[in-house]
């Protein structure tokens, strides 16, 4: 108890014992010094002249971005269509692959612990690697284009959908599963009748949420050559056409808002 007695015999209350207090100070000290160390490293690698100039650069950027060159929007419909296709087809492909992986990764449905760790490995690798990295990789393999984008989105989605879905599977109520097994159902039938109905809403919700994220991510895949509106963004930035860039930003912003709205609507309809 952190209540101690002073030499005069008066009880003193402290939140922590002396030892715990010291440990906490030490932890804070270590944390702060680590932060300062990191800060110093970043600061060493920074040209402070540029940073001091940031305000002027920012103002300059804004002045160059306005007014947006609205006429440029006409060029963007096709890339936008591509972007939406990348996200949608990629999501579809991704959830098709994630579905079995999730069942193999969930503790209560996996056929074998070894299979489980393999499935978890797939999920972690897919999750750790950003879709842009997947895209870079696939562009060098498949060549630039929409296909690389679709596969990149799919590969990244496996981990995301797989992880959330396997967590949902692990949280199902066990009694219906038990009841279905007790009827003499086979393993697949138990999955189909006992497990699947319980996770279906979660699966649908996760998929449409991932689709919404994928719309966002596919807007930038073009930066590495994987198709979509990012290609235009890259071109405009390279040619310093900032008034075009602002049009692209506005279009991305609008698309993302719409997709977010759709995904929220669908999720509410499901539950």
């Amino acid at each position: 108890m952190p209540v101690s007695t002073t030499p005069q015999g008066l009880p003193v209350w402290r939140r922590r014992t002396t030892r715990a207090q010291w440990l906490q100070y030490l932890a804070w000290l270590a944390g702060v010094s680590l932060f300062l160390l990191c800060w110093k490293m970043i600061s060493d690698n920074t040209m402070w002249v540029f940073v001091e100039d940031a305000g002027r650069q920012g103002a300059d950027l804004i002045s160059r971005m306005t007014p947006p060159e609205w006429g440029y929007a006409n060029v963007l419909w096709k890339p936008m269509w591509d972007t939406i296709n990348i996200a949608t087809l990629g999501t579809a492909l991704g959830i098709m692959m994630a579905f079995p992986v999730a069942f193999l990764a969930a503790r209560n449905t996996t056929p074998h612990p070894l299979v489980r760790s393999l499935a978890l490995m797939v999920i972690v690798s897919s999750r750790s690697i950003n879709s842009l990295i997947w895209a870079m990789l696939l562009v060098t393999i498949l060549g630039p284009g929409v296909l690389a984008g679709i596969i990149a989105i799919a590969l990244r989605s496996i981990g995301f959908v797989g992880k959330l879905l396997y967590e949902a599977i692990e949280e199902i109520h066990p009694t219906p599963v038990e009841a279905i097994s007790a009827t003499g159902a086979s393993r697949l039938q138990v999955m189909n009748y006992g497990v699947l109905p319980q996770v279906m809403p979660a699966f649908a919700g996760i998929s449409v949420y991932r689709w919404d994220i994928n719309i966002r991510e596919s807007t930038v895949l073009g930066l590495v050559g994987a198709g979509g509106i990012g290609l235009q963004l890259n071109a405009s930035i390279n040619s310093l056409a900032w008034d075009q860039v602002s049009v692209i930003f506005i279009m991305i912003f609008a698309t993302v808002l719409v997709s977010e709205w759709i995904s929220a609507r669908v999720r509410h309809a499901i539950i």
């Binding site: 970043i42 920074t46 040209m47 540029f50 940073v51 950027l61």
Partner: peptide, 8 residues
């Protein structure tokens, strides 16, 4: 563009 290349 604003702060220059680098980790900052």
């Amino acid at each position: 563009v604003m702060f220059g290349f680098g980790p900052f």
